[in-house]
Simulated scan of single mutants.
Amino acid sequence: MTLSTHALPQPSTLSAVEARVLGTLMEKARTVPDSYPLTLNSLLLGCNQKTSREPLMELDEAQVATALDTLKPLGLVREVSGGRTARYEHNAQRAIGVPEQSAVLLGLLMLRGPQTAGELRLNTERWYKFADISSVEGFLEELQERPAEKGGPLVIKLARTPGTREQRWAHLLCGPVDETQAGPITAARTPGGEVTGNTVERLAQLEAEVAQLRVTVQRLCAELGMSPPGQP
């Protein structure tokens, strides 16, 4: 099915390599804006980096170039003219037809695979700061309930795996998800330092408690005519 410039059609559009290339461009636009748009070599390094990627890939220039050639006519990627070296930027949000927050979630799911709403909130910190987990869940639910006239669902909530409390979400840009291949989350840190699994749940709870305490302190300081801690 052909991709329009207004909305992504039914899933099963992108290959795993195309999703990695698109997700990398989306990430670098937000995390290294001074180096963006990316050259082919920078994009290759981003696709193959050993942190914040699931699964890890060992792509070559030809594979990345082929993916770009596929993504450009779909309106998802643009080649930027100027200078001796061609550079590339994504156009995902407009091409897919989703708000900024939804595009951020899709990009992260393309790069790191299925994640819980708590993991997504923490891992998107450098991309976009969601107010809370409920906000993340709200945008995920919108993506899951996307009507057929706009192309249908773009994410799916996976069944809960044994030993876990939270369900994970996966994108559908590469077609239906094989849940048997999506391993359970673990309460650990990855080599890149990202927090996963039940640790995320505990952190989210602590964040909520700290936020509530901060509000209480600010209210008490206001009532007493004092400056909140950390302010002159």
Score class of each variant (00 low, 15 high):
Gly152Pro: 07
Glu61Val: 12
Gly225Trp: 07
Gly163Ala: 09
Gln101Ile: 04
Asp60Pro: 00
Thr116Arg: 06
Asn41Arg: 08
Leu43Gly: 01
Arg121Ala: 11
Gly83Asp: 07
Gly118Ser: 08
Val177Thr: 13
Leu158Gly: 01
Gln181Trp: 03
Gln93Ala: 10
Ala117Trp: 03
Gln49Pro: 01
Glu141Ala: 11
Ile96Gly: 01
Thr164Pro: 00
Gly152Thr: 07
Glu100Met: 13
Thr24Asp: 01
Ser15Trp: 04
Val195His: 01
Pro228Ala: 11
Gly152Lys: 07
Ala131Phe: 14
Arg219Phe: 10
Leu105Glu: 07
Leu120Met: 11
Arg189Trp: 06
Pro114His: 06
Ala208Tyr: 05
Thr161Phe: 03
Met226Trp: 05
Glu149Leu: 14
Glu166Pro: 01
Ala29Cys: 02
Pro153Met: 09
Gly113Ala: 10
Trp169Leu: 09
Gln10Glu: 15
His171Ile: 05
Gln212Leu: 14
Leu140Glu: 03
Val155Asn: 02
Asn41Asp: 08
Asn48Thr: 05
Gln101Ser: 06
Asp34Ser: 15
Ala208Gln: 11
Gly183Ser: 14
Gln181Gly: 00
Gly193Ile: 01
Ile156Cys: 07
Leu158Asn: 02
Ser227Lys: 14
Glu194Asn: 12
Leu203Val: 09
Leu143Glu: 06
Leu206Ile: 11
Asp178Gln: 10
Asn41Ala: 08
Ala188Thr: 11
Tyr128His: 14
Leu213Asp: 13
Arg20Gly: 00
Thr124Val: 10
Thr66Trp: 07
Arg94Ala: 13
Leu122Arg: 05
Arg219His: 12
Gly151Ile: 07
Pro153Trp: 09
Leu45Asp: 12
Gln10Leu: 14
Ala92Thr: 04
Leu143Trp: 10
Tyr88Trp: 13
Val136Ala: 04
Leu38Cys: 10
Gln93Lys: 11
Gln63Thr: 12
Asn41Leu: 06
Glu207Arg: 14
Met26Pro: 00
Val200Glu: 01
Lys150Ala: 14
Phe139Trp: 15
Pro153His: 09
Ser42Pro: 00
Arg87Asp: 04
Arg94Pro: 00
Glu61Gly: 12
Gly197Arg: 00
Ala65Glu: 11
Ser15Thr: 15
His171Lys: 06
Asp178Glu: 11
Arg219Tyr: 07
Arg219Ser: 11
Gln218Asn: 15
Gly46Glu: 02
Pro147Ala: 08
Ala170Trp: 07
Leu158Phe: 02
Leu59Arg: 04
Thr124Ile: 07
Thr196Arg: 09
Thr180Ile: 12
Gly118Ile: 02
Val177Lys: 06
Cys47Asn: 02
Glu89Cys: 08
Phe130Asn: 02
Gly230Val: 00
Thr2Leu: 14
Glu79Phe: 01
Val217Gln: 03
Leu213Cys: 15
Arg87Phe: 06
Cys221Lys: 05
Ser12His: 12
Val195Asp: 01
Lys28Phe: 14
Pro99Cys: 08
Leu22Tyr: 01
Leu76Ala: 06
Arg112Ala: 12
Leu206Ala: 14
Ala131Pro: 00
Ala7Arg: 13
Met26Tyr: 05
Thr216Ala: 14
Leu68Asp: 05
Leu143Cys: 12
Thr39His: 02
Arg112Leu: 09
